[in-house]
Structures are given as C-alpha cells and as structure tokens.
Simulated scan of single mutants.
Amino acid sequence: MLRIALCDDETKARDALRFQLEKILYEGVESIVYEFNSGKRAASWLAKHPGEIDLLFLDVEMKEQSGMETALEIRKFNRKLMIVFVTGYPDYVFDGYRTGALDYILKPADPERLRELMERIRRMEQEQADAFFAFHNIDGTFKLACRDILYFYSEKRLVHLVTAEKEYTFYDKLDLVAAKVGNDFVRIHQRYLVNASAVEHISASAVTISGIQLPMSRALKEEASKKLARAMLGGAF
C-alpha cells in the first residue's frame, strides 16, 4: 500500500492537488492519508511516526517554514521518505535535489505529468517490495527496511520487532512473519527469528546480535548454524 501525504499552507492548492491525485490513484492500495498546512507540523509529525508515510508532496513556497527547510529537517531523521516538491517557480527545482527529492511538479499540476510520476513511483515500489516489512499496530501502519531489522521474537499472540533504535509490537504469528521476510532471516528457536546479516557470533546454544544473546534451540541448531555461518562468511543460503 502506498500512503501519501500533502503539505501546503494554502487550502485551495492542497484541494487542487488532492483532486488530481484521487483521479489516478489505485483504489484500495494507494491513498492520501494525511494533510498538513505547515512544514513544521509535517516534520514534527513525521519524526514521531516513522514508516507511516511513503510519499510526501511538499510545497516549496510556504510562509512559516519553506518546503526546502522542511525537507532538510526531515532528512535528519528519515532518508527513505519519497519527497516530491510542488512549486510555482521552476527556479527552485535544482535546489530540491540536494535534499534527495524524487522529483518536482509545477503548479497547477499537469494531469499527464502527475500520471507519469505516479507510474514511476509504482515501479520503484514494486522493485523494492521484497526489501521491506510492513505491519500494523495501535500506533498505526509501519513499513521498515528489512536490513534495519535485527530480529523478531514472539510472546503469546504478540510479535516483537527489534531494530537498533526501537522495538515494535504487533499481533501476528512468527511463522507468517518468516514467510514474509524470506531467506535473509533464520529461525533459531520457536520464539526467535533473526536477520542473518546482523548476527555477530554463533555459539553452541545461542547467537549474538548487538551484544545480546538469543537462545538457539536444539531442534533448529544444526540447520540454523549452517545458514548463519554461510551468511557470516558471505555465502548464499
């Protein structure tokens, strides 16, 4: 699912862009989920809700804080968010690329230009789909890069996802999670699923990730040890 946000301090401009987008979005898999009327509010909200937005249409010429300033602030904590600048002045376009912007559109948005942009974004999303893990909990919907996930562990009906910065909890089964993340993750225990590339050490009964020892069960030890050893030595599973 592609989750989109709009940021423009002019209500009419936001409405116009939303109207154009809604005509070309794929129903059920693409939606405009948030709108912001200032860059400061957008940056503050995004900092507190990592992974909830995939694409941000960001106006350049805003009064309180410009779109360029907002993008630079967002890049301090999020390098992955796709940003498309919206501007009435093409002179600003080249400045946008230093913030890692995906592209720009001129006001008023040309329907064909917008359609071409969305097609390109869809192709990018499809190419990267296998490299992300998405889940939902009471705080919202998140999509994290698999390379940033250290390990998962289950606790009754809950699954805990652990990264270097944070731990997330959601309802699921570890078997289903393992099927979604693929072979880069190895089951070392009934309750533990680890990112092979994050493993620092393998012992007789545990693996170490970020200085934390995780138990390895006897039943899974032989197969898990082989897979992890090959990954640590740079081989394929």
Score class of each variant (00 low, 15 high):
residue 190 Q to I: 02
residue 57 F to C: 00
residue 65 Q to N: 05
residue 75 R to A: 06
residue 178 A to W: 03
residue 67 G to I: 04
residue 137 N to S: 06
residue 171 Y to C: 09
residue 151 Y to M: 07
residue 149 I to F: 06
residue 230 R to M: 11
residue 174 L to P: 06
residue 174 L to W: 04
residue 202 I to C: 15
residue 218 R to N: 11
residue 124 M to T: 13
residue 94 F to Y: 13
residue 1 M to A: 11
residue 142 F to N: 10
residue 27 E to H: 07
residue 72 L to P: 03
residue 119 E to K: 09
residue 44 S to A: 13
residue 204 A to K: 13
residue 83 I to E: 08
residue 123 R to H: 11
residue 179 A to L: 13
residue 131 A to S: 13
residue 88 G to K: 03
residue 6 L to M: 02
residue 195 N to L: 07
residue 34 Y to W: 09
residue 7 C to D: 02
residue 213 Q to R: 14
residue 123 R to G: 15
residue 201 H to Q: 14
residue 213 Q to K: 12
residue 46 L to R: 06
residue 205 S to Y: 08
residue 15 D to K: 03
residue 223 E to C: 05
residue 107 K to V: 00
residue 188 I to Y: 05
residue 205 S to C: 08
residue 10 E to W: 00
residue 133 F to H: 14
residue 182 G to I: 06
residue 204 A to W: 04
residue 69 E to G: 01
residue 27 E to Q: 13
residue 43 A to G: 07
residue 89 Y to R: 12
residue 190 Q to L: 01
residue 28 G to N: 05
residue 230 R to F: 08
residue 41 R to W: 02
residue 180 K to H: 10
residue 167 E to N: 12
residue 211 G to N: 09
residue 207 V to Q: 10
residue 158 L to R: 14
residue 111 P to G: 03
residue 102 L to N: 10
residue 74 I to T: 08
residue 65 Q to P: 02
residue 37 N to M: 08
residue 233 L to W: 03
residue 43 A to M: 07
residue 140 G to Y: 06
residue 176 L to S: 14
residue 210 S to A: 15
residue 24 I to G: 05
residue 204 A to Q: 12
residue 228 L to Y: 05
residue 132 F to Y: 15
residue 168 Y to G: 07
residue 44 S to C: 03
residue 181 V to K: 09
residue 90 P to C: 02
residue 185 F to Q: 15
residue 5 A to M: 04
residue 156 K to R: 15
residue 133 F to C: 09
residue 19 F to C: 08
residue 228 L to T: 05
residue 220 L to N: 13
residue 224 A to T: 04
residue 166 K to D: 14
residue 186 V to N: 12
residue 126 Q to R: 13
residue 162 V to W: 09
